[in-house]
Amino acid sequence: MALDKNGIAKRIAKEVKDGYYVNLGIGIPTLVANYVRNDISVEFQSENGVLGMGPFPFEGEEDPDVINAGKQTITTLPGASFFDSAMSFSMIRGKHVHLTILGAMEVAENGDIANWKIPGKMVKGMGGAMDLVASAENIIVAMMHTNKRGESKLLERCSLPITGVGCVKKVVTNLAVLDITSDGFVLRERAPGVSVEEIAQATAGKLHIPEDVPEMDI
């Protein structure tokens, strides 16, 4: 069965390693924090200016001066720090953040990503996404494999205005884990009960299928 959003987050959480500073985007990526093993040390960075982000506050303890990049009220953990926006992006551009997890509308087989604009319809802006994808060396995209109309979001080339060029190396969807290499998308893992054929059918871009494609262990 295809994964739900929490399932995607749970699978991505396995990519978070001990000692990592991690930036989580809005949406599915935010959920990843809930599934990171608690026997490793990880700090979450939010680009509006906090490192060491904790869970949501208890009711009545919300502080309007302590929010994440999604404008949600949050808490901080011991060892946390606050900083200004220029310093926040020094951490990102300067490659001090080890892992970036973000959502996308489209990903192309050459690693291009589109997630900020639908011309004429929706223009919310890129926020910190362009800085993140241009600098981070380890980017994982978390998204559904197809859009609401059932069309593939893994394409030969992005049809929407792109956020960054050739930057995505790994995609985790409700159906599969895929790497992006010079061969295009390489199918690494299937969601439990999902067949290789289903994934191939839902992937518009060039898909390389190795002989053995194990089920995700989540």
Binding site: S85, F89, M126, G127, M130
Partner: peptide, 22 residues
């Protein structure tokens, strides 16, 4: 206002915005 063209909008990356200030 943006989609109707009344408002001119320049969207720029957040880190670029911060750095143009700095």
């Amino acid at each position: 206002q943006m989609l109707s063209g009344e408002l001119e909008v320049e969207l720029i990356p957040q880190g670029t915005l911060a750095e143009r200030c700095r």
